[in-house]
Nucleic acid binder design. Structure first.
Lengths: 366, 366
DNA sequence: TTGAAAGCGATACCAC
DNA sequence: GTGGTATCGCTTTCAA
């Protein structure tokens, strides 16, 4: 029905050669092509609704303007999802397109995902994970400019650049927030230590106590899991059947779902939030934290910003990369020419405290 | 550092011509190439870690083996996300790759998303939406085989094929589930009517009453919104301060988040779920429904299946499409050759009842 | 059985 | 100022 117009069609219609079309449409027309021809070419292109075939362009230019993203649980989780959205927006604004391969948490698919992407000649690669975690980077990622988002290379050095949230600081600032409200008996409900996010947030929590000159009561730190039910049962352990005078006045949760469980438990026990106990989440999950009753105070994970930052850094490297221009010099790869700066930096991006209605002043007498 | 090996490199190493390499590696070697050469070629390919350049292949074969997905809120929501995941799995198993462009609910980006994808020479297009809704299909989608997932063409006929959930039946079966438990006074908490999902589910709810020969009490149907707080306030309206004997014994929610709000409200009022009131969700949202306390009975939206079904149908059309083989016959497009069957069918896929702990027998005396 | 050559669509160099 | 032509990597036909 509609074979797309090619540069040749445009040339024919305008009565010029393909080269002229190419020149004009790429802005290199002035001084090379007669103005009258330029006009005709532009009209022809418009008439034919011409746009260059990106595949041919990719082959010719030896760059696809595609960034491959491998994510461990991307499309189905709002976490990875937001990182990817942030990354994609930046990519798009640079005329790149992203293609994401989801491994659905199956590490054995890492290599083949990267391989598939590489086969498609992606110009760069990003690895993004749902939760912060060390990553055994698929070795073939090194073949193009690459970056890690929300994860970091598990080898000691020589790692890929990584963009990760400052979890320690996030944990500390969460604790400081409730401390500022007068709380002293503060519990911390974390997920398992499969991800370093939990220990790091706990570390921040400890830091806050240390900075305040207060001791940490180890009984107050519970690693329970990441879901609503874990929060519920954790809170029950902390609150059910214990004297009002000896129960924690604030409960910090390592994510918003845990916080839902905690609030559920409080209500079940006839306790009000935040009057009887303050509850804090983490993540500022979309449509959750803000919509809770009461709306959750939380530590927002800067997911989009992380994605954007990672993509910005990656694109900078891609665009500086040698394959941008055609490299003459035969096949032999001289190790002399250094193009990529040895950036093995970890970029920390801060979390953002969001105060809503689930945290309040410490109850009188505590 | 490492220019990828090309077929020519393999040919050189094996001491044969490019053509031979191509033949052998595509399984057309037997009967064309000496067995000994075949052996050498395979070894050379392995040694060089050769894999064909997909870009060149795309150009040559006039098909990219890329399916473009435009989603209205894809990567950040678990809803679209699961549809996409299901679709992607099928695509991958056919040697296709998907690239998704997210419009983030900005309809004005539809056209340009499709345009971008088309420029990249995608072989097919899928449009997926977070919630069921009529869609003003971007006209240029018609240029390649296309399909709709979770949405449908808003023009009367001649529409694209669509795969949508059977919401009416879902609503009906949800109601039937609690009716089977003895409930008669059943409320329905729905979101707004911006999506036809709400009215359709309500329609199913009415159908169930009609089938049971029971009247629908219109006061029991509340359109409140889609979030936790909406569920909370809706439930409060239904339950707070009303006689135990006149309050609904079951509350059906149009999604799981609403159900969270309802349970929160119940607990707040000292009511138990499901002993005092049964609560049902919809969607079976991952890490939510199952992890709630109590675990939510819900109507699972078959997101992955929808994505898979849509992609399967799409791929069938793509692979039957003329561009699969190179069409000789010059440039003129004869309108005679019909390839695509006039499928403007809407495929309905059923939802799945998941019974957990939030629904139970009607309280004694009701 | 093998190799040479023609495209796929676009760009850029280089003679005219 | 212009148009021919090599090239990117691959497949496929045709001739030797």
């Amino acid at each position: 029905m509609n074979r797309k117009a090619t540069a040749l069609d445009v040339a024919k219609l305008a009565g010029v050669s393909r080269s002229a079309v190419s020149l004009v449409l790429n802005g290199r027309g002035d001084g090379n092509v007669a103005l009258e021809s330029q006009q005709r070419i532009r009209e022809a292109a418009a008439a034919l609704n011409y746009s260059p075939n990106k595949i041919a362009l990719s082959l010719r230019n030896q760059q696809s303007r595609v960034i491959g993203i491998v994510s461990d649980l991307g499309v189905t989780s709002p976490f990875d999802g937001n990182i990817i959205a942030g990354a994609d927006a930046v990519a798009r604004s640079h005329g790149f397109v992203t293609v994401v391969m989801d491994t659905e948490l199956d590490e054995s698919r890492d290599e083949s995902a990267v391989e598939t992407l590489l086969d498609r000649q992606v110009d760069g690669l990003m690895y993004v994970t749902v939760g912060l975690r060390p990553l055994h980077v698929p070795p073939n990622m090194a073949r193009v400019p690459s970056i890690l988002a929300n994860c970091f290379d598990d080898r000691p050095e020589a790692g890929l650049p990584a963009v990760i949230p400052d979890e320690v600081r996030g944990g500390r600032e969460a604790a400081e927030h409730v401390m500022a409200l007068g709380h002293r008996d503060i519990a911390f409900l974390a997920g398992d230590s499969l991800t370093p996010a939990a220990p790091r947030r706990i570390e921040g929590y400890r830091d806050a106590f240390k900075a305040a000159g207060l001791p940490v009561n180890e009984d107050r730190v519970l690693q329970v899991g990441w879901d609503i039910d874990a929060g519920f049962h954790g809170a029950m352990k902390l609150l059910d059947g214990v004297e009002p005078s000896t129960r924690p006045t604030a409960i910090l949760c390592a994510n918003d779902r845990l916080a839902i469980g905690v609030v559920l438990a409080c209500y079940r026990l006839g306790l009000n939030v935040p009057q009887d106990v303050s509850v804090m989440g983490y993540d500022d999950e979309f449509r959750v934290a803000k919509a809770m009753v009461p709306a959750l105070s939380t530590m927002a994970l800067p997911l989009r910003e992380m994605g954007a930052a990672a993509m910005t850094a990656l694109l900078a490297e891609v665009e500086a990369s040698p394959s941008g221009k055609n490299d003459d010099g035969g096949a032999g790869a001289g190790p002399g020419a250094s193009a990529e700066p040895a950036t093995s930096a970890e970029t920390m991006v801060p979390c953002r405290l969001v105060v809503r209605d689930s945290t309040g002043p410490v109850p009188a007498g505590r």
